[in-house]
Simulated assay, not measured.
Amino acid sequence: MLHSDELEGIPIKLSAAVSSTEDRIMADLVERIRASMEISATADWQLNRLRMLGESDEYIRETLQDLLGFSDKEMARLYSDTLGQAYIRDKALYDASGVKLIPFKENKELQTIIGAVKKQTSGTFRNITNTMGFAKRVNGKIVFTELSKYYQEALDGAMMDLTTGTYDYNSILKRIVGEMTSSGLRTVDYASGRSFRVESAMRMALMTGFNQTVAKINDDVAEQLDTDYFEVDWHGGARPSHQKWQGKVYSKKQLTTICGLGSAGGLLGINCYHSYNPFVPGASVRNYTDKQLKQMNADENTPTPYKGQEYTTYEATQRQRQLEALMRKQRQEIKLLEKGGADKDEMSIYRASYRGTSAQYNEFSEAMGIPQQRKRVTVDGLSKV
């Protein structure tokens, strides 16, 4: 089916769209705060407050509709193009086994499943966008606040702080921008009370649906080829619990009992980018021997020193993700503070901090011998800092 790098690239366009939506909503609030600061008279503020909140509600609705429209189109593309191309990769195996491959679009059972999964995923996306907001610390606790309420509290709080002289505009702007970029646009699960980044929640929903379809295709192909065996692929930087079973051949039952297929932490589970393919003894050839797998895993687990610490390949990639997340936050802060007209001297400090993190990222990646993933940082679509 698909290789690990292809699976990892599947959510990229959706992640970019969610990041753009997040930035647009944050920027809209910053612009409204800046506009409210120009209304010095309390009477004028009271007259304009409801208008500004009404306009923000309308802007949020339109922005989320844009996101949902894009996500529907992106899902259609992924399921028709990406899955269609992966589907025909098994043709050589079909030919070697003397079995005719049903064309992707003519496989009615598969198309029915794809339609149902797309509908389910689309519904999940809409639920996510209906429960969005920001999280902020109140009396030492992290409290989730729905988007419209956060707008209202931010605007009212900013005006109160300014009119009472508690804080100046620059301090107010930094506080609100810091809150938003630290939290990120979030969705809440009211059953558990936990909130999640919207980008993570939508990526998880997309990959869950996609992986369900991949699993169904694999089962169908194996059934047509009369095999009960599958080869799980191998990729660098796999988490330790996945490393021990990647790259080998298993029966369908073993995919569940050994690899954890169907569980959140197993094969095709949350943030898993492994794939597996039907394996026909006598016709298929393994990608790696047991000896090769043992050596590759040993190389991955050999620690590399860096500034007093040691990192395996997996630990190094996790540190990379942390630095990438920090750079995305810093980029958001810089762009939002620029839009809000923050103090120029302080802006220089923010830019210098970003450049320092970027240099650290370069140095660390080179020391670890792992490729940089700058696309994870620039997925926000913001211009060069």
Rank of each mutant, 00 (worst) to 15 (best):
S4V: 02
S4E: 07
P11C: 08
I12Y: 15
L14H: 02
A17N: 03
V18I: 12
S20M: 10
R24D: 09
I25H: 01
D28M: 10
D28G: 11
V30F: 00
E38I: 04
E38N: 12
S40A: 10
A43Q: 14
D44F: 05
Q46I: 14
R51H: 13
R51N: 13
M52P: 01
E58G: 14
E58W: 02
I60C: 02
E62M: 13
Q65R: 00
L68T: 00
G69E: 08
D72T: 05
R77W: 10
Y79F: 15
D81R: 11
D81F: 08
G84S: 13
Q85P: 01
I88P: 01
I88Y: 10
R89C: 07
D90T: 12
D90N: 11
V99H: 04
I102A: 04
I102E: 08
P103N: 07
F104H: 03
K105W: 09
K108S: 11
Q111V: 02
I114S: 00
G115M: 04
G115S: 15
V117I: 11
T131K: 09
T131H: 14
M132F: 03
G133Q: 03
A135K: 07
A135Y: 01
V138S: 09
K141V: 10
V143I: 15
F144E: 02
E146S: 06
K149N: 10
A154P: 00
L155C: 07
D161I: 04
T166A: 15
Y167G: 04
Y169H: 10
N170P: 01
L173C: 08
L173W: 03
G178M: 06
G178A: 08
S182L: 10
G184A: 05
G184R: 00
D189C: 06
S192L: 03
R197Y: 04
M202K: 01
L206R: 00
M207L: 15
G209V: 00
Q212E: 11
Q212L: 05
N218D: 14
D220V: 08
L225V: 05
D226S: 14
F230C: 02
G237F: 07
R239S: 13
Q243C: 08
Q246L: 05
K248Q: 11
K248M: 10
S251C: 09
L255I: 03
T256C: 06
C259A: 14
S263F: 12
A264E: 11
I270C: 05
S275M: 09
N277Q: 15
P278G: 01
V280N: 01
N287V: 10
K291N: 11
K291W: 07
M296C: 08
M296D: 06
N301P: 08
P305C: 06
K307P: 03
K307V: 11
R319P: 03
L323V: 06
A325I: 04
L326A: 12
R328H: 05
K329N: 08
Q330F: 04
Q332T: 05
L336W: 00
A342N: 09
D343A: 09
D343N: 15
M347R: 03
Y354K: 04
R355N: 13
G356A: 12
T357Y: 07
N362F: 09
E363K: 14
S365T: 11
E366N: 12
G369R: 03
Q373L: 15
K375W: 13
G381N: 10
K384I: 14
V385R: 08
